[in-house]
Design a protein around this nucleic acid. Structure first.
Length: 110
DNA sequence: GTTTTGACAGTAT
DNA sequence: AATACTGCCAAAA
């Protein structure tokens, strides 16, 4: 592998990579799976830091509302929207994804 | 060692 | 209901 990050970071990366194709997960969900329900900030940092180095499917990571985190009219927004569309994830022009349809239901034990 | 950042989430007003 | 602030964790400068 490239470099060894902290166990938390590796976990976050692991779960991000574990997102099935055609599904999307939220920052909070990944952070929760990693054991830190409030590490959503760390998730965003991971994407920035390791999206390329670790080949992370960052396009499958949305915010808590199931929307693309980027502001519209940005390259990242268009790129993510395009990738999601290629995976069968329908997004609105606002980048909204229906979590009830494409939401990654790994274990939502309330 | 301290300060700043990072594509957020949750709570408070 | 909508907006603002705070909290959280980890890494880079």
């Amino acid at each position: 592998m490239k470099k060894e990050l902290s166990p938390f970071s590796e976990k976050l990366i692991f779960y991000i990579r574990a997102i099935p194709r055609g599904k999307v997960a939220t920052y909070g969900q990944i952070a929760r799976l990693a054991g830190k329900p409030h590490a959503s900030r760390t998730v965003s940092w991971i994407l920035h830091s390791c999206s390329k180095a670790y080949k992370l499917p960052w396009h499958r990571v949305l915010n808590s509302r199931g929307k693309i985190s980027f502001p519209p009219q940005t390259a990242g927004f268009a790129r993510q929207k395009n990738r999601l569309a290629l995976e069968g994830v329908e997004t609105t022009f606002l980048g909204e994804v229906d979590l009830s349809v494409h939401g990654w239901k790994k274990k939502r034990a309330v």
